[in-house]
Design a protein around this nucleic acid. Structure first.
Lengths: 150, 150
DNA sequence: CAAAGATCATTGAGCTTGTCAATGGTTTTT
DNA sequence: AAAAACCATTGACAAGCTCAATGATCTTTG
């Protein structure tokens, strides 16, 4: 195996601590965006988890949301009642119900995504070189963390 | 004012995107730690928000959790029922109820905190210099984002 | 092929989260 | 002292969430 089990430097721990602080500070933003869109946080997550133009089984959504499938039923009921998503029969398997975003759903999803993808204010203070450096370091951390198929 | 409204580089946006991915990947960990501790996520957050040895009014907790005060009442009811926190009268103002962690509550809080503060696997791949660089860049972003008293 | 087993979404029960409006007990202001 | 503001709680109600059970549909296998 030889997984190069390098022990963590104190700096790494500090970096992680700052990242947690940064993430925590985003909570308010998420709540605000959700409220503004007339969505509860779980509804917002569900909408974000759905990819426009790509039907997904309910079970998959439950997996992405990390919750029970029965929970997704109610969640989707409410989203469907607002005309944001639709249940469609799946081609090959009649047990499965495919979820698709309606036009309205896609529009709302995009509007929300735009707000959430905008970097917090602090990023504006970075020079281009610094931003590039930060990005590369983060990519390295993320890649090592989820080694999907080396 | 002269707030140096520097426009964001594409690299900054990419860095933020990676950070979001990284944060998202932590959701499972939080859920696992909460379940392991026999706590619901909100209960875990409440416990983390409380500082050992430092009594806090319920209203403050509501502020930290960003939820209604009436919600905190029930939340604390359940934590108190498990003997994790206690309501104490506040010295100067009899309207206020101070929350304090019991010994058991502090112990559980510390156990949970230890698990959450541990950096994800990806950080182990960083050299010391890289970790230091990452930390400093993150601090810069965080500081610019929340300019509490320059 | 047919029976058994696995899978998917839903339902129902039951609890926790969360909000809002209203209340009682306490300061603080006027 | 009366009025206004404040803190925590309560009650009502919607939503989120899990678990166990069900019905409908594949999939396996005997």
């Amino acid at each position: 195996m030889e997984t190069t089990a390098q022990s963590l430097s104190p700096e790494a721990a500090e970096a992680w601590a700052v990242m947690r602080t940064l993430a925590l500070a985003q909570r308010g933003r998420v709540l605000a965006v959700a409220a503004e869109a007339g969505l509860s946080p779980p509804q917002l997550f569900a909408l974000q988890a759905l990819t426009p133009g790509r039907p997904a089984p309910m079970g998959d959504l439950a997996g992405m949301l990390r919750c029970d499938a029965s929970n997704v039923t109610g969640l989707v009921d409410r989203l469907a009642a607002r005309g944001l998503v639709e249940r469609r029969p799946a081609p090959h398997d009649r047990r499965i119900r495919h979820l698709v975003l309606t036009d309205e759903g896609r529009a709302l999803r995009d509007r929300v995504a735009e707000r959430l993808e905008a970097p917090p204010d602090g990023f504006a203070g970075l020079s281009r070189d610094e931003a590039q450096l930060l990005r590369d370091l983060l990519i390295k951390v993320a890649a090592a963390g989820s080694p999907r198929r080396a």
